[in-house]
């Protein structure tokens, strides 16, 4: 069952070095912009998969290989940690 981006806050903090749950992610497929916290996250698969809540496209995939995180961000057109007002 899908969780949301809050559930991968620790993983993203580990990868990016700052909290990403408030970051605005733009879906490369449909253009929807949403806080990472409100995306769909699947954490029980072999890797971690983040999907767009509007169109279900894959936004982010993280796979852990020998202690290293391999991050595929090709599904996001933009990921803005500190959105301008």
């Amino acid at each position: 069952m899908a969780l949301d981006g809050n559930a991968i806050g620790g993983l993203l903090l580990e990868i990016f070095g700052s909290d990403m749950t408030s970051a605005q992610a733009t879906c490369a497929s449909c253009g929807a912009v949403s806080p990472v916290a409100e995306t769909m996250a699947y954490v029980r698969s072999p890797g971690t998969v983040v999907r767009c809540r509007r169109c279900q496209s894959v936004l982010i995939v993280v796979a852990r290989v020998r202690g290293l995180n391999c991050v595929d961000l090709s599904g996001v057109a933009a990921l803005e940690a500190h959105p301008r007002p």
Binding site: N6, G10, L13, E14, D19, T21, P35, V36, A37, E38
Partner: peptide, 9 residues
């Protein structure tokens, strides 16, 4: 333990 995590909620 690691944290705290999450500045959205």
């Amino acid at each position: 333990v690691r944290g705290p995590i999450g500045d959205w909620f």
